[in-house]
Design a protein around this nucleic acid. Sequence first.
DNA 1: CCCCAAATACGAAAGAGTTCGTCAATCGCG
DNA 2: CGCGATTGACGAACTCTTTCGTATTTGGGG
Lengths: 133, 133
Amino acid sequence: MTETPKPTPSELKILKFLWQNGPSTVRDVHEGIGVQVGHSYTTTLKQMQIMRDKGLLARDDSQRAHVFQPTVGEEPTQRAMLDDFMQRVYEGSASQLVMQALGISRPASAAELEEIDRLVQRLREESRGGTGR
Amino acid sequence: MTETPKPTPSELKILKFLWQNGPSTVRDVHEGIGVQVGHSYTTTLKQMQIMRDKGLLARDDSQRAHVFQPTVGEEPTQRAMLDDFMQRVYEGSASQLVMQALGISRPASAAELEEIDRLVQRLREESRGGTGR
DNA sequence: CCCCAAATACGAAAGAGTTCGTCAATCGCG
DNA sequence: CGCGATTGACGAACTCTTTCGTATTTGGGG
């Protein structure tokens, strides 16, 4: 009964839009992300119908233009995808993934590094004394 | 001209075997990873032929049983996959990915956390003074 | 030398994901 | 009321991935 949705790349784009903009019509989503990549309206529509079939989206059809929203939260979805990715690529080793992620590009600002630092310190505290949950 | 191979899941399994075991025959790979998932020999063979067509593997056919090896290193491949994943799921934010990875499961041992800590400290030093490479 | 087992080549089929065209329903404006 | 534009339903085509069956080649033991 594990609810672990693993959206495809284009499904993820739509989910991201809905997470950010709240319940939206197909038109909204299409204008938001479909137009600039040159998709036709029906492409976006079909995609969202499929996602509804899969249970990724819920639909309110009380209006002529149906309103869609995700049935899954952003964070659980990211976690599930990350978990799968970590398993496939890093044999499940979070630390190896983290090390490589921190070496990549230059996105981590001072504030972000500080935040990461706090988290690491907290985890080290826990690992020192605690049972590890 | 960016060489960024993005292997599929089953391609990655084969690459992992070859990275770990060095140049191998189809038989080797099949015994190593194909058998226990119930694949037939030709499945492994075909997969490796395709990977060679894609340029992921090189082949030495001086022996009757051809010997394959990866044309790509493990780390660059992981980096490329991680970069893509980070882009798709976290809008390119390494710190967000790291935060979530550290929150996942309980894989980070004290030693690993310490190693991460050292890296974070080093990055903070650099970010304090440097241009960020 | 001949045959069998091992190996490779090749085509095909099934499944998933993505994109689009056509058709039907419906709402609102003139 | 009727027509045009908007919307939704649906099927189909195309690509990519994965899996396998069959055919062909080849090397070594009897």
